[in-house]
Design a binder for these strands. Structure first.
Lengths: 197, 197
DNA sequence: ACATTCTATTGACGAAAATTCAATAGCGCC
DNA sequence: GGCGCTATTGAATTTTCGTCAATAGAATGT
């Protein structure tokens, strides 16, 4: 009766499959609301296999978060232009589009990061730092952004502003267009930095 | 050997003790990283008592979050003045001081809210909304803040900016003074709103 | 000083979820 | 068609959550 035909994949394939399942499942709920039982059943595999690949439930969560972070970074790669302003604009638009296209996944990433343990938070912080560096560590930015503690604080806060605003907009776009949204978050940075003078 | 002298408190005292322990513990780690076993051991009581007072682990978490939210709202009550600008300024300064004085509790609130379930997030959202309403639902604000979808979005994002910036500052104040911090978050609001024109 | 009552508190129990590990069975290779 | 490698399994173990009848502080009355 029980159609127990085990399918044997390469480690890469299986890992991939499980990570994608994780991304899909975590979109709706948190990881600790899903038992390994349900997870493995959903994947059509045994409980033990998840431990074989990820060591623990926590390990699985971390791998999924890492995967989501990598996705985000890869898909918001700015163009090769030198002009920092152009790069910033392109990167932000790409970011907005990514969140729109990937709303649930992105939201669960942010949630997992905020509510997770030290490791998970570090993964998220690294991704965030990588994105910031990518656009700001460009020849010419020092003219726009003096590197002071206050500026760093404001840029950091601006990132939080962008994240929250874009997510809130996805929840309820109410007559604000995608382009208006992009303009809001883009204009916000110079406006915030200007208050420091 | 086992010094089993059970101490009997009034329900209010015990509840208070457990809530305070929760605030302290959740500042560093998430609730689901701490077993009821460890929690009760830390409190010097039996496992059963937590269930007696809070019904479930989740119930305990919700109670702790509610407690943190109530604290926040109570301790940042703005003065009775009518001038919205004055109220905003006073409220923000109170907020900054509250977070500084109450770093652990506040951070556990933010974390729990981000990583928690629907109920916990609702508690947090309510607290946030109450604070915003308290300072903005005042006769005279409409002159300063037009009530448009874009404005709402920006104000909401500004709150995220404030939360993140103040917490980041607490983590690493690096030569930015408390007053400078207060100025940064206060100036940010008009600067952000001005970009909408 | 003692007994009684009330209820805060306990600890043992059962259920569910997490984790381990020796045994099993696909799949490529000779 | 048999052999070896290793991906995969499922049962056993451990940990944690949640329940409940029994226990023991503290106050009150005699």
């Amino acid at each position: 009766m029980t159609a127990t035909t085990r399918t044997r994949l390469t480690p890469e394939q299986r890992r991939e499959q499980l990570l994608e399942l994780g991304l899909r499942l975590f979109a709706g709920t948190t990881i600790d609301e899903i038992s390994i039982d349900r997870l493995s059943e959903e994947a059509g595999i045994s409980r033990g296999l998840i431990y074989h690949y990820f060591g623990s439930k926590q390990g699985f969560r971390e791998a999924v978060v890492q995967r989501a972070a990598d996705d985000l970074i890869a898909q918001t790669e700015p163009p090769e232009g030198d002009d920092p302003i152009v790069k910033l604009l392109a990167s932000l638009t790409a970011y907005v589009d990514y969140v729109i296209a990937n709303y649930e996944g992105y939201r669960s990433l942010v949630r997992a990061a905020a509510g997770g343990n030290e490791t998970v938070r570090a993964i998220y912080e690294n991704a965030r730092a990588a994105m910031i560096d990518r656009t700001f560590a460009t020849p010419g930015v020092d003219a726009l952004l003096a590197d002071t503690p206050a500026t760093r604080l404001v840029v950091r806060g601006w990132v939080a502003f962008v994240e929250d605003t874009v997510l809130a907009w996805c929840d309820a776009p109410d007559g604000v267009t995608r382009d208006e949204l992009a303009k809001i978050v883009t204009d916000a940075l110079p406006a915030l930095v200007a208050t420091l003078d």
